[in-house]
Design a protein around this nucleic acid. Structure first.
Lengths: 111, 111
DNA sequence: ATAATTAATCGTAATATTGCAATAATATAA
DNA sequence: TTATATTATTGCAATATTACGATTAATTAT
């Protein structure tokens, strides 16, 4: 079928999965790291830094924007992208929570 | 084309992306949470708890196992799955590192 | 041995993702 | 205006993912 049965899961499970999906591509990881490193970034710079075609980068930026994790503002002919700090912190917290959850029970490994 | 150009990215970027991909599905999140909650779990229990067909669950388990985040041991006719604590901690650390990185620079939001 | 239980694998259909050439849209420069 | 620069969108091909019925493999119960 190719489509997840989202109705079987809780809102939080779907949300966390969607967050993970947003960063589940090395290009998107690279974009985010570049935005962090340079604090803000023109789309064209990302195209030259990462070796993918401009439409491909544009598409990844669109996905990251859709996930809320970045924001872009038009600056003349260019677009400046940067991290959305609020959503970033939300990601940070969600993932942290998720991984902390197993902290106690998974210490030994059962099988 | 449908295949990531992994050669353009660092080993760590690819690794983190692969980790994110491993948990980028609500069923796999649900499986992991169930394994944490019950400490260990028979495959069949996951099938009844989550509403997906047995082959589908089996496939998700295979992916999680491939990613190293869970392990399974045969117990007679059943298979007992549980978190692999070592890899779990690695995930925890990788994601933590990644999200901490932006802590300072992304405080304000640039655009 | 036969039946029942449990999980993995195979095969396949439906859908999603990745990547890019070509094009469009928008803004700036000449 | 016309040309140039920058980014978004469209359309398409290649590949990957998700889901499950049917089957297989392995173990346990009768």
């Amino acid at each position: 079928m190719g489509a997840s049965k989202t109705n079987l899961f809780t809102k939080k499970q779907n949300e966390l999965a969607a967050m993970a999906k947003a960063i589940a591509h090395p290009a998107r990881i690279a974009i985010l790291q570049e935005l962090i490193k340079t604090d803000a970034c023109i789309c064209g710079d990302l195209v030259s830094d990462i070796g993918l075609a401009q439409p491909t980068i544009s598409q990844h930026l669109k996905e990251l924007k859709l996930a809320g994790i970045i924001q872009g503002t038009v600056e003349g002919a260019r677009v400046c992208y940067c991290i959305n700090p609020k959503i970033w912190q939300k990601y940070r917290q969600f993932f942290s929570e998720f991984f902390v959850a197993a902290g106690d029970s998974a210490k030994e490994g059962c099988c």
